[in-house]
């Protein structure tokens, strides 16, 4: 430490939010889950809605998300989080129910629940982590795995012939009239994190104003699954994932962005 004299509360620029618990997250070093958790928690703190926020955690790497968000939480069966959130938000319309789901959970096994919750325009926030792989089960192919990408169940690289195309579910959901806000962001740089946090804030503000479904995709890394260092993985993500999953707003205020 070079300047211990400036370590004073009045000089504080940034500290970890108390809307995260003290539990050490189980995520691999450098995983975007942790960063995304953090900024969701920060938004909840800044909006002063910790007592009204309800987290619905998925099955996948973030299955234990409920241990980290210091808000009332439920662990969903695989893919069913949007159905669970639907009921909670309808039964408690003044709450801030959000789901936190990965690509397998949201875009494979839970496709029906996702599409129908969005199509009904449920007043919920869905945060979707897309890292193109099944991390928790050991790096198998996801619906969002890129063509050519090697995974445990596409060891020679994903092919269209065998596995079909990477699913751009976010674009698909933007077509539904029930979605009010659909955006795709990332968390690999400070600037990207700030933008993603702004998007998450927007999503919760929409929920406050009862606008319908807000959907925030976060394109993320899986350095373990991709077999890279965290820094390499972020670079690979920018060069490859962003081509298929371009960053930016897809639908704002109920209107698709041209």
């Amino acid at each position: 430490m070079f300047n211990p004299d400036i370590i004073k509360p009045e000089n504080l620029v940034y500290k970890r939010t108390d809307v995260l618990t003290q539990a050490v997250m189980h995520y691999c070093p450098g995983c975007g889950h942790g960063t995304t958790h953090r900024i969701i928690a920060e938004v909840i703190e800044e909006m002063g809605i910790q007592d009204k926020a309800i987290c619905v955690a998925p099955v996948g790497c973030s299955v234990l998300a409920y241990n980290y968000f210091n808000v009332d939480s439920l662990g969903a069966a695989h893919g069913r989080a949007p159905a669970i959130a639907t009921a909670i938000q309808r039964l408690y319309p003044d709450r801030y129910t959000f789901t936190y789901q990965g690509d397998g959970d949201l875009a494979a096994i839970g496709t029906a629940e996702t599409i129908h919750a969005c199509n009904r325009g449920e007043n919920i926030v869905i945060v979707f982590i897309n890292n193109g792989i099944y991390g928790m089960t050991g790096g198998q192919m996801a619906p969002t795995t890129l063509i050519g990408m090697k995974t445990a169940t596409s060891p020679y690289g994903r092919t269209v012939e065998l596995n079909g195309y990477p699913l751009q579910i976010t674009e698909l959901l933007a077509e539904l009239p029930g979605t009010y806000y659909v955006t795709r962001q990332s968390v690999q740089t400070a600037a990207a994190v700030r933008k993603t946090k702004k998007a998450i804030r927007q999503a919760f503000e929409n929920q406050k104003n009862k606008k319908g479904t807000s959907f925030v995709e976060v394109v993320s890394n899986c350095n373990s699954g991709w077999k890279m260092t965290p820094v390499q993985a972020n670079k690979w993500m920018e060069e490859n994932m962003f081509v298929k999953y371009p960053i930016g707003d897809i639908k704002v205020d109920g209107q698709k962005v041209k």
């Binding site: 504080l12 940034y14 500290k15 942790g34 960063t35 690999q188 740089t189």
Partner: peptide, 27 residues
């Protein structure tokens, strides 16, 4: 860890830290 006394308190490090282990001060 910080290795040189050149911090401007921009909090970029804290922003990207997945584990929220960095606290930042600035004057």
């Amino acid at each position: 860890e910080a290795i040189i006394d050149n911090c401007i308190g921009c909090a970029s490090c804290a922003m990207v830290c997945p584990d929220g282990v960095i606290t930042v001060y600035k004057v």
